[in-house]
């Protein structure tokens, strides 16, 4: 079993290097606590709250940082009477 595992497993160090490169590229680019993706997140929420009241519980934000591309998914449940302006 151990022998089989020994031959079947590839090296894990390249995975470590790649993960660190992506992570550190993002962290170094960040100034203070607001890198681009975080800024976008805040501004998108602000823009939406101008037009409708957002229930914090109904907002889900997902992020995936990649080497070339990062994705930001903002999923907001808009209630039936949600087009009222925020108070």
């Amino acid at each position: 079993m151990n022998l089989f595992r020994f031959f079947s497993r590839g090296q894990s160090a390249p995975a470590a290097r790649e993960r660190l490169q992506v992570l550190l590229a993002h962290e170094r680019a960040a100034t203070g606590d607001s890198d681009l993706v975080n800024k976008l997140r805040d501004e998108i929420l602000k823009a939406i709250s101008k037009h409708m009241q957002i229930d914090d519980e109904k907002v889900s934000i997902k992020m995936e940082r990649g080497a070339q591309v990062s994705t930001l998914a903002v999923d907001i449940e808009i209630p039936f009477n949600g087009n009222k302006k925020a108070a």
């Binding site: 993960r19 997902k62 940082r65």
Partner: peptide, 8 residues
């Protein structure tokens, strides 16, 4: 392995 998904 969740370092790319931290939002808050």
């Amino acid at each position: 392995g969740a370092e790319r998904r931290v939002v808050y």
